[in-house]
Computed example of a mutant assay.
Amino acid sequence: MSLTRIHNLSISLDGFATGEPQSKEAPFGHAGERLHEWMFATRFWKKTGGTVGADHAFAERHEPGIGAEIMGANKFGPPGWQDDPDWKGWWGPNPPFHTPTFVLTHRPRPPIEMAGGTTFHFLDASPAEALQAAREAAGGQDVRIGGGATVVRDFVAAGLVDNMHLVQVPIVLGRGVRVWDGLEALEQGYDIEVVSTPSGVTHLTFMRKRG
């Protein structure tokens, strides 16, 4: 069976994956882009130039072997996007997913086919139901849980995540949406590896224990 994976989810020292308030002008709220500066410096992001050390090596694991993605409503758009029939996400006509992408929302709409192989499907579904739909669309490849923090937390709490890569960034946000809430004793179900890099971030890799 295909794996369920999370990659490059950046969190603050106090566990927030986004700040507040989220808006069209500030997708990550008061956090701005501070959580992602480590990635912007890598060759994975820049394509030409950029660093090729450990940060790049972790970041580029985001793409190989992925056949479908699941994301939450707040990753697809700012508050109120459901009222805008023309909203097609933050990413322009050719989104970076290039796979079937399932958006969890209580207000589904017809699928949107984009350039580059991305088709957005809108589901009002539980994590298990959404994962089943994504696996059927993934053609035997893995499914990526793309975020945001609430969706990641829900899938982890439901026991549906096989591999998870989080990046702890040395900033304190104080408010926003935390990943860890409700996940007490998470470490008991995963083997965890920790790698710190010269950029100042710490890569946390969680691999589900087998047997």
Results as ranks from 00 to 15, higher is better:
D162N: 11
A157P: 11
G147L: 03
R144K: 15
L160P: 08
V161Q: 00
P170S: 07
G146K: 04
R153Y: 13
G148T: 08
V169D: 01
V167R: 00
V169T: 10
L173Q: 06
R175L: 09
V156S: 06
V161W: 03
R175S: 14
P170A: 05
G139A: 05
G159E: 12
Q168L: 12
V167L: 01
V143P: 12
V143W: 14
V151Q: 02
F155D: 01
Q168K: 11
G159W: 14
G176L: 02
G139Q: 03
G147K: 01
G139H: 04
G159L: 07
V169C: 08
G176Q: 00
D162V: 06
I145N: 05
V169P: 00
I171G: 04
A158D: 03
G176T: 02
D154F: 05
H165N: 15
G176F: 02
M164W: 07
G140A: 05
G140T: 11
M164D: 00
V143M: 14
V172H: 12
N163A: 12
G139N: 05
V172D: 04
H165Y: 08
Q141G: 13
M164I: 03
R175H: 13
T150E: 13
V167F: 01
R175P: 04
G174D: 04
V151T: 14
G148W: 10
F155Y: 12
G147R: 01
V151P: 01
V172Q: 10
A149Q: 02
I145H: 09
V151N: 00
P170Y: 11
L166C: 11
V169H: 04
R153M: 08
G174P: 00
I145K: 07
D142G: 09
D154E: 15
Q168M: 15
D154K: 13
P170T: 05
V172E: 10
V143T: 13
A157I: 02
I145M: 10
I145C: 08
L166A: 12
G174S: 03
T150F: 14
D162G: 01
G176D: 00
V152C: 14
